[in-house]
Design a protein around this nucleic acid. Structure first.
Length: 425
RNA sequence: GCGGAUAUAGCUCAGUGGUUAGAGCGCCUCGCUGUGGCCGAGGAGGUCGUGGGUUCAAUUCCCAUUAUCCGCCCCA
């Protein structure tokens, strides 16, 4: 019979997976660290359905983005409704915020999430069809302090993980008016290049010329090499805001690089955009992206609500941590209870009692030989073994063995908890 | 969506047109009848990714297919 395997572009997470970044404790830990981290800033958890009406995504991300036009997992449900597995988080959260009026005018709302996302594309290492993003959305403030908070939160999160060698790339793509003017500048410069493109590609490029800026095509880069940065075209308030964001980041000690080529792949961004990159994952350099999206709420049928957010690739963060050998070992047991056949029931009671005292504790289920039980204890990584055999049972004691040193001593049954606590210090 | 490489034990990988396909690690048993790690001996585990073709004979050669990896694209 043919065996099943995880669908193309997906992977399983389980204890002791060959790749350290696919081990379950790595995932449990990064999520726990993220929850702790955002709690320091007062972000609340948001969870919304993993699928939405397709239009939630087409209207938000925009019809020029590749993500929306080519990569969505779209299906019709049995009620003949067009549904799509979320290709990114923000659109669904914005839908929910509008739906429940979570951010009335004048209020500020901070939301955090950890979620799978789905994009149908050619899989590569650290590019999957089901990937995971964690991120935050900061709603209700036009202040540059909001932009700076999100960027700083992001950088501090990488610091918390211990991850090194990242670069924050910062840009502002302004508002509609300035972007329209800048578009023409790009299109004029790139005219000769666009002529040679396939009709479909050209149409896409012409609809969003900003995307041409981060092209890796040398010919195009050459053509656009002397183009002035978009920030030259920002209107006065936009310019001031962008400078304020930079000043706040500098004051916070957050290093960044101005990068006029960063324009982001989703169409809803306005003004500040940023990306975090690392050079350790080959072509998958982009670790995290985000920016301001002041027009998205209106586009989604809500009230004008200023907002800034970021989404961080979990696989890539874990991948870089693995490269840098910063992923921790799986948590170990405190205790392993060893018994002989006659004392099996008592050993189970003892195991239960130790768990009740808060120790991570396991015992053999299958009455294996003492030797086999000690091997299990050794493999489990437990610091201590508690031996409860016939001899100990007769004396009303438990033998406590330090598995590293081999030291053993008898402990009265009532005093086991304290003795263990002492030994684990 | 385009180009290239790869697919043999749970993991990392050798190998061959010809009887029973190997190693290291891991796993199990025993040496040690109540003591793990180190050492030694033994053992389990493979339809050689899948389907078709060439051949007396295919894990090996050819074609297709699927998956993985790398680059492009896109992005997290």
């Amino acid at each position: 019979m043919e065996k099943f395997q995880a669908p193309r572009g997906t992977f399983d997470v389980y204890p002791n997976a060959a790749e350290p970044w696919q081990r379950s404790h790595s995932w449990v830990e990064i999520e726990a660290e993220f929850r702790k981290h955002v709690a320091l800033y007062g972000y609340g958890d948001i969870r919304t359905p993993i699928f939405e009406e397709t239009e939630v995504f087409t209207r938000s991300a925009g019809d020029t983005s590749e993500v929306v036009t080519k990569q969505m997992y779209t299906f019709k449900d049995k009620g003949d409704r067009e549904m799509t597995l979320r290709p990114e988080g923000t659109a669904g959260y914005v839908r929910a915020v509008i739906d429940h009026n979570l951010c009335p005018p004048g209020s500020t709302v901070r939301l955090a999430y950890f979620t799978p996302i789905f994009r149908y594309e050619r899989p590569q290492k650290f590019r999957y069809r089901q990937a995971h993003q964690l991120g935050v959305e900061l709603l209700g403030s036009t202040s540059p302090a909001a932009d700076a908070e999100v960027i700083e939160l992001t950088v501090r999160f990488y610091e918390r993980l211990g991850l090194k060698g990242i670069t924050v790339l910062l840009n502002s793509i302004g508002r509609d008016e300035c972007r329209a003017a800048y578009r023409d500048v790009i299109l004029k410069k790139a005219e000769s290049y666009l002529k040679d493109q396939e009709a479909e590609d050209r149409a896409r490029m012409e609809r969003n010329p900003l995307r041409l800026l981060d092209s890796k095509d040398p010919a195009l880069q050459q053509l656009l090499s002397d183009i002035p940065p978009i920030t030259n075209y920002l209107e006065e308030t936009g310019k001031q805001q962008f400078e304020e964001v930079q000043a706040l980041l500098s004051a916070a000690g957050v290093a960044f690089t101005l990068a006029p080529q960063i324009v982001r792949g989703l169409d809803y961004y306005t003004d500040t955009v940023f990306e975090v990159q690392s050079n350790q994952l080959g072509a998958q350099a982009s670790l995290c992206g985000g920016g301001r999206y002041d027009d998205l709420f209106k586009r989604m049928g809500g009230q004008q609500t200023p907002a800034v957010g970021m989404a961080l690739g979990v696989e890539r963060a874990l991948g870089v941590l693995q490269e840098q050998e910063l992923l921790s070992e799986a948590p170990k047991l405190d205790l392993f209870v060893v018994y002989t056949e006659a004392t099996k029931a008592a050993a189970f009671l003892l195991t239960r009692a130790m768990r009740a005292e808060g120790f991570a504790c396991q015992t053999d289920l299958d009455s294996r030989s003492l030797r086999a039980q000690f091997r299990l204890a050794d493999k489990s990584g437990a610091r201590l073994a508690l031996i409860l055999g016939e001899d100990e049972a007769a004396k009303g004691v438990v033998k406590l063995r330090d598995l590293a040193s081999g030291d053993e001593k008898d402990v009265a049954r009532e005093a086991v908890g304290d003795a263990v606590r002492q030994s684990l210090k």
